[in-house]
């Protein structure tokens, strides 16, 4: 895919993982983040009891939604599709989504700890929600470690897919941990029927969720393309090795 720019020189449009669409999406996300920071830090009022510590909700919850509900769900679907159809596309999609999910889950844990200190008096406690979330972080980090094992790619993908499915079961525990056990962590923050938030705070919260999800989309496209490039390079390397062996056999 080669394009000609206004100066008349040729430009390779596939020399990066970006494209016209992703550049536009990236610009929207960048503007969205600036607006989110302004809303979250300066425009919204402090919460009645938690005061300014509550401002962490605008990045903590959107990060949790992206990792626990979106990214790892895509990994689950990708893992199932790989085992069912042996689809390389879904295998790489599962890998890309899991890596982004781990990044966002790490951010969820860090912002949660920073929020916990002023509200609970401690950065960490072995509470059901915090513990099950930390277990998810370890499970999906393990998933990424399996993807980097030096072994037959088909076996590696199969093992990773099984781990991708098993790890998702823990997310059900994360989701319902605040209902099943006595938890220091608050219950569901956002309920469509009863948001318990109003005005500019609710707007900022929903805006944060939208911006974070758009950012996830942008990242997923780029990370998938990186995974595809790695797959193609491995494929080209294998083809060259086979041809070299053939030439050796002929000579």
């Amino acid at each position: 895919m080669t394009t000609i720019d206004t100066a008349g020189s040729t430009k390779d449009a596939t020399a990066t993982t970006g494209s016209k669409g992703t550049r536009m999406l990236g610009a929207v996300v960048a503007v969205g983040f600036v607006a989110l920071a302004a809303l979250a830090l300066f425009i919204t009022p402090p919460e009645a009891t938690q005061r300014d510590a509550f401002r962490l909700i605008y990045i903590h919850v959107p990060s949790a939604i992206v990792s626990l509900y979106i990214a790892f769900s895509i990994t689950l679907v990708g893992s199932i599709m790989y085992l069912w159809k042996k689809s390389v596309f879904w295998d790489l999609m599962a890998e890309a989504s899991a890596e982004i999910g781990v990044i966002f889950l790490g951010l969820t844990l860090i912002t949660g700890m920073l929020w916990g200190r002023p509200t609970w008096g401690t950065y960490w406690i072995w509470d059901p929600r915090l513990t099950s979330t930390a277990v998810s972080f370890v499970l999906y980090s393990g998933y990424l470690a399996v993807r980097r094992l030096d072994m037959d790619p088909t076996v590696r993908s199969k093992r990773a897919a099984i781990l991708g499915i098993v790890s998702f079961a823990n997310l059900i525990i994360v989701r319902y941990s605040v209902q099943w056990w006595d938890s220091l962590h608050q219950g569901q923050t956002f309920d469509v029927a009863d948001t318990q938030m109003d005005g500019i705070m609710l707007f900022t919260f929903v805006f944060g969720v939208i911006v974070m999800n758009l950012f996830f989309g942008w990242l997923l496209i780029h990370r998938f393309r990186v995974a595809w490039l790695e797959h193609q390079i491995a494929d080209v390397g294998l083809t060259e090795a086979i041809e070299a062996r053939r030439r050796e056999g002929v000579s």
Binding site: A15, T16, T17, G18, A37, A40, L41, D52, A53, R55, L56, I59, H60, S63, I100, I103, G106, L107, I110, T111, L114, W115, R117, P118, F215, L219, H222, R223, R225, V226, L229, E230, I233
Partner: peptide
């Protein structure tokens, strides 16, 4: 607690974006 939270978010996500884009260009 709030400011470090937002700084960590910018640094972590920004570093990951740059690493992914550079990795893509190299590949």
């Amino acid at each position: 607690f709030v400011i470090p939270g937002y700084i960590v978010a910018v640094v972590v996500l920004g570093t990951y974006v740059l690493a992914t884009v550079k990795r893509g260009r190299r590949l």
